[in-house]
Structure formats: structure tokens, C-alpha cells
Computed example of a mutant assay.
Amino acid sequence: MGSEFGVGTGMIDTAAMRHAMVASQLRTTGVDDVRVVAAMASVPREEFVPAESRTLAYRDTPIPLGRGRYLNNPMATGRLLTEAAILPEDRVLLVGAATGYTAAVLVELGATVTAVESDAGLLATARAALPGAVGIHWVEGPMADGHAAGAPYDVLLVDGSVEELPAALIAQLRVEGRIAAGIVDKGVTRLCSGRRTEGGVGVVPFVDAECVVLPGFAKPAAFRF
């Protein structure tokens, strides 16, 4: 890992912090898929945050990554992964890869991941945190565009909140493919899930929760006379 993210954790007991995250933030908030809990208990979250924030890595709060971006809080990511019902060998389009934490958890669950990120610096950190990772294809570009060359995907996972799900992302999901994403609705972030069908897409909220807002997904401003 690079120097910004790569200093040691000193005397921090990250294993104990990971255990506390599982006990107090995941199991108590509806993250009830035992495979998701086990994967999040296994992946060292502190390796995906800036060095100065490592003591915050397991708190139930977004972690600043610089340039206005944040690593999603564990509960939001855990609930999205649970609702997505990730299966071994699922092909997942991950939108909002950030520093690679959620991609690492998805691989731990047995998925093959196409991880899209618009911030070149964050993507460089993700690659450095997971050198030679098998099962992850990193894509630098507008998150709203996804990665059509790898379609169709079994799952669309947006690890953050967006004002709307672009048609370009939905089109890259196979029919009956699953969706889990945060949606910004009148200033409130809601975690949502659903499926693509022959007739379109159906996504419904399942909980109001803090979920970081991703750039590049603003709805076009309504025309005013």
C-alpha cells in the first residue's frame, strides 16, 4: 500500500475492534446473513482507510477518504450485502468501489466483482490494498456508466446513495438480476433493494439509514418557467 494509507496500526487491537463491529453494529441492525457477518469479520477494514483514520475504521460512521469522498459505514454496507443475497460465483457490478473494502468482502463471499470508481486516487489505493486480487476487475470511469463490456451481471450493488439509478446501470443487469443501493429521497438516505424484470425494474426501500452520497448521480434540474 502507498505511504498515505500504509503506516502500521501500532498498538491498536484491530481484531478486537472487528469483533466489536460485528457484535454491536451488524448483528443488532439486521445484518443477519451469517456469510456476510463472517466475511466482514474476516476482511481487515483498517487496511482500506487513511492512516490517520485507522482508529475510526470500525466505528459506525463514514470514514473521510479525501476529496469529498467517504467509506460507507459498516451497517449500511452490511445491510446492502445482506439484501443483495450474494451467492458464490455471482457476477457483481460494484458501483462506488472507493478504496476497495466492499470489493474485498464480495470476493470473500465468492463473487466475481467488476468494481467501478471515478476517483483515480481512490482506485489506486484499492489496487494497492489488494495487490494481485483474484476475482476483481477494477474500472476507472464515471460510476453512472458502469461497465457495459462486462455485462450482464447477476447483481448491481451501489455502495452509497444516489439520487436515481441510471438506465445505463439497469441495462447491464440480467433479467431477474438483483439490486441493492442507497437512494437519496428528499434529503433522506434510504437503503433499497429489488430486481430487474422483463418489464423494467422494481426497487423498494427497506430501511432509512445513513449512507454516503456518491457523486455523479444528480437528477437533471427540473425546467422552470
Rank of each mutant, 00 (worst) to 15 (best):
P74T: 07
Y70N: 07
A120G: 10
A57P: 05
L94E: 00
E117S: 01
A128Y: 06
L123T: 06
L80K: 09
M143A: 04
T61F: 06
A104I: 01
A97I: 01
R127Y: 07
E46F: 11
T112A: 11
Y101L: 14
G135S: 01
V113K: 08
A76M: 00
V139P: 01
D119Q: 05
V36N: 01
A144N: 09
S42M: 07
L93M: 05
V95I: 15
A149Y: 00
L87G: 00
P88T: 11
V49M: 14
V49W: 15
A149M: 08
S118R: 12
P44K: 15
T61N: 06
A51E: 15
R67K: 13
P88W: 01
T114I: 05
G110Q: 01
L56E: 15
V36Q: 05
F48H: 15
S118L: 09
E108K: 08
D119F: 07
E108H: 07
S42K: 09
V31G: 02
L106W: 06
V95P: 03
T82F: 12
G96I: 00
V113R: 09
V37L: 05
R54S: 02
A97T: 06
P44N: 14
T114P: 00
N72D: 11
R79K: 11
A38K: 07
V134Q: 15
G141D: 01
V31A: 08
A103M: 09
G110C: 04
A144F: 10
A41C: 03
A38C: 04
P131H: 14
V116D: 14
G110R: 03
L109H: 04
G150Q: 11
A104R: 13
N73L: 10
A120N: 07
P131S: 13
T125G: 03
L122R: 04
G135Q: 02
H137T: 14
L122S: 04
T125V: 14
V113A: 08
A144C: 09
T102H: 00
